[in-house]
Structure formats: structure tokens, C-alpha cells
């Protein structure tokens, strides 16, 4: 059986790709996809550590609640994105600059 580190490296890679997506992409929905990737990376770590905790399964329980919160977050965030689109007719993040001093 391979070690814990394999899972941790996959989680770290997924986290970094999520960060890169948030930095480079300008469409609000793609940025939300990056956030989901980061949450998944955290879940991989929790589940990997939970394999050594067969009695209490704390890691898996925590991952379950993270999934619940992520689902709620995605629903509310997409609702906000829809409102932004109705108001500005765009979801391009650089064009939402009404508060910026011109």
C-alpha cells in the first residue's frame, strides 16, 4: 500500500491549480470552478488522513460537512452571479468597476 504522501501531493497540485485559475481567469463562473477545486483539494487531504482513524472517522465526517457547505456556497454564489449579470450585462470581473475612481 502506498503512503499518505501520494494523496497529499495530489491535493496540493489540485489546490495550486485552483489558485492559478482564480488568478488567471476573468469569468466569474470559471473563478467559482477554481474555488470548488480548492475545496476538493482540502477534502482529499481530510479523507487521506481519515484512513488511519477507522474508529472515529473524523476526517470523513469533516469532509462530508465541507461538501454540504460547498454546495450551499455554490448555490448562493451562482445566484449572486446571476444578479450581477442582470445588472451589468456581463460577468467579466474586470468590467465590474463601478466603484473604481475613473
Amino acid at each position: 500500500m502506498f503512503s499518505l504522501e501520494h494523496f497529499l501531493v495530489v491535493g496540493a497540485a489540485l489546490f495550486c491549480i485552483g489558485v492559478v485559475i482564480i488568478i488567471t481567469k476573468r469569468n466569474a463562473i470559471v473563478v467559482l470552478m477554481g474555488i470548488e477545486l480548492i475545496l476538493n483539494a482540502a477534502n482529499i487531504n481530510l479523507v487521506a488522513f481519515s484512513r488511519y482513524d477507522a474508529n472515529v472517522l473524523q476526517g470523513q465526517m469533516f469532509a462530508l460537512f465541507v461538501i454540504v457547505v460547498a454546495a450551499a456556497e455554490a448555490a448562493v454564489a451562482l445566484a449572486i452571479v446571476l444578479r450581477v449579470y442582470q445588472y451589468y450585462q456581463t460577468v467579466h470581473l474586470d468590467k465590474l468597476d463601478e466603484l473604481k475612481e475613473k
Binding site: N40, A48, S50, L64, A70, A71, A74, L78, Y85
Partner: peptide, 30 residues
């Protein structure tokens, strides 16, 4: 692989069945 069978099913049901469909709806509506 990590021994979390319930979480795998939950992942498929919530993320693939819920969040991803919501994202694609968001793409269509925006």
C-alpha cells in the same frame, strides 16, 4: 482508493449531479 466509499457516492451525487449542473446553468444564463 482511500477507503471512503460513502464520500465517493456523495461526491458524485452532490458535485456532478448538483454543483456542476448548477455551473452549466450559470454558464447558459450569463
Amino acid at each position: 482508493v482511500a477507503g471512503a466509499d460513502l464520500l465517493a457516492v456523495v461526491q458524485i451525487m452532490i458535485y456532478v449531479g448538483g454543483v456542476l449542473v448548477l455551473m452549466i446553468f450559470g454558464v447558459m444564463l450569463t
